[in-house]
Design a protein around this nucleic acid. Structure first.
Length: 478
RNA sequence: GGUGGCGUACCCAAGCGGCCCAAGGGAGCUGAUUGCAAAUCAGCGAUUCGUCGGUUCAAAUCCGACCGCCACCUCCA
């Protein structure tokens, strides 16, 4: 079976064939850095992560670019007040917009690490590419796709024949929708801004048309060409990006370069919280930090956010988060027991046939499922079938078979990415003494004393496990 | 108002015309194991897939209506 992706552009499942044999060019719409990243944002970033990891699992090399939107951008309402999101956040927090952008992008990068997201090759910032954006706008003006008007430079959407092909929002249907406010500066109310003039804006740059700042869509067009070339293999984002953002990117890029902009458009569905839309007023709005500060493990959050198909509405609940934590434990426990077997038993002989066929079987089923537009829920079903099968036979597994099975588990986890984090903590001398005391108590049969010590250590984050080979300990999972 | 999508057990979630009296994970209960735990294993757990109709030899899967939810319609992952 071959790899297939659902392409938003064609609205159908298509076989994936990258443009170049050497490397898959991926562009992800990244964060807008004027607020704390929330769990919904990270669902789409984790989708991008799994996509990249799976392509690498399949043997592709990737080049992945994720932009950082550090210009706030005006809303239509805000145009009246000349206020944009970054400026609003800045004013509220009594900081300048640059400091706000820095603060939230730092948080974003920190969370990428905490959630075990593989780093993109580059995270270009919009504000570092204003000169290129100006050049692109000039080119669009030259080609007749853009015009200078009172408040800025606008893109003439009716000149681009394919406008609306991605989202279905053709000029005709947009007009029929009747929600377009009139704007005297635009030739057509549907035209969108490439450059906004506003000398009072804090984040402003000089341009041939006067001081101002770039429109929202142009940054992605410019940065993707600069770092990936004129035609990308894959462009991802949240479903809300389909219109107007991605629709407008296509228009800009294709009219500017005269080439197909993106071959496969992939969009992640929004996350629901408790069955409905996440919103601050409904009280079901969670930032990633809030979840982690409540003591939930990042591995659990990662697992939950990636465990449903990316094109379905994943419903976030705290029950789900806890159950994800247990699911991750199951994977980690298997890794620990396999490592235990490997370290204990001397090498010798080959992995037995059962271990080999079990490994092959799970890898094939996993790949078949993931090939089907990243059907990770189905793929995880097979992973846990594998886990159960190995556990059932764990007592009879030799070290070479264990190595083989561990290799398989880690290969699967190279896509899932949930087995990580340090469990290696140093015991204090006091804790070591307590463990020895407990051993003595147990030998004497003084179980009330030994249980007391076990409870105490648990409180300190150390979990004890009694086994045939003596007492082991590990960092307890919360 | 226009357009698109979804509704599967206590929770999360696969399945998209016969292999389904419906994967997998979690929670729960029962048992094995353990001094007791932890981990692990076994068993139980939807005769039913939002509701009501229809098509078909056959429907969770197709069609229609209704109910509920989500998204987009120029900030929003």
């Amino acid at each position: 079976m071959s790899l297939k992706f659902y392409n938003t552009y064609s609205k159908s499942l298509e076989e994936f064939k990258p443009l170049s044999k050497d490397v898959v060019a991926i562009y992800n719409c990244g964060p807008t850095v004027y607020d704390h990243p929330h769990i919904g944002n990270f669902r789409s970033f984790l989708f991008a992560d799994v996509l990249k990891r799976y392509l690498e699992f399949k043997g592709y090399k990737t080049r992945q670019i994720m932009n950082i939107t550090d210009v706030g951008h005006l809303t239509m309402d805000d145009v009246e007040q000349g206020e944009d999101k970054l400026e609003a956040a800045a004013r509220k927090q009594k900081l300048d917009p640059w400091a706000i952008a820095k603060m939230y992008s730092d948080e974003f990068f920190e969370l990428l690490t905490v959630l075990n997201v593989k780093k993109a090759d580059l995270y270009p910032r919009a504000t570092d590419h204003v000169q290129e954006m100006i050049k692109a706008i000039e080119k669009l003006i030259e080609k007749g796709y853009a015009y200078v008007s009172g408040e800025g430079v606008y893109y003439r959407i009716r000149k681009f024949k394919d406008y609306g092909k991605l989202s279905g929002n053709t000029p005709e249907s947009l007009v029929a929708g009747k929600r377009i406010p009139k704007n005297p500066n635009k030739e057509d109310p549907l035209d969108f801004a490439l450059w906004k003039l506003d000398p009072k804006h804090i984040m402003k740059w000089p341009s041939p048309w006067g001081e101002g700042f770039p429109g929202w869509h142009i940054e992605c067009s410019v940065m993707s060409v600069k770092y990936l070339g004129e035609t990308l293999d894959i462009h991802t984002g949240g479903e809300d990006n389909i219109f107007p953002h991605h629709e407008s990117e296509i228009a800009q890029s294709e009219s500017c370069n005269g080439k197909q902009f993106v071959r496969y458009w992939m969009h992640a569905r929004h996350l629901l919280v408790g069955g409905s839309k996440m919103s601050k007023s409904a009280g079901n709005f969670y930032t990633v930090k809030q979840i982690l500060n409540q003591g939930y493990r990042p591995q659990a959050l990662r697992f939950l956010l990636l465990s449903a198909h990316y094109r379905s509405n994943l419903n976030f609940t705290f029950d789900g988060l806890e159950s994800s934590g247990s699911a991750v434990d199951k994977l980690v426990n298997l890794k620990d027991s396999l490592e235990g077997i490997i370290s204990k038993k001397s090498k010798g002989g080959d992995a037995n046939q059962q271990a080999i066929s079990l490994s092959n079987s799970v890898l094939v089923k996993f790949e078949e499922s993931m090939d089907d537009d990243l059907n990770i829920a189905k793929a995880l079903g097979y992973v846990f079938d594998f886990v159960g099968e190995v556990n059932r036979n764990i007592s009879s597994i030799g070290s070479d078979s264990a190595s083989k099975l561990l290799e398989t588990l880690l290969k699967l986890d190279s896509v899932i990415g949930c087995i990580y984090g340090d469990k290696t903590i140093e015991l204090t001398p006091e804790q070591e003494r307590l463990i020895r005391d407990r051993e003595d108590a147990r030998k004497k049969g003084d179980f009330s004393a030994s249980d007391k010590i076990r409870d105490e250590l648990k409180r300190q984050g150390i979990q004890l496990i009694d086994s045939k080979d003596g007492t082991k300990w590990k960092k307890s999972l919360c």
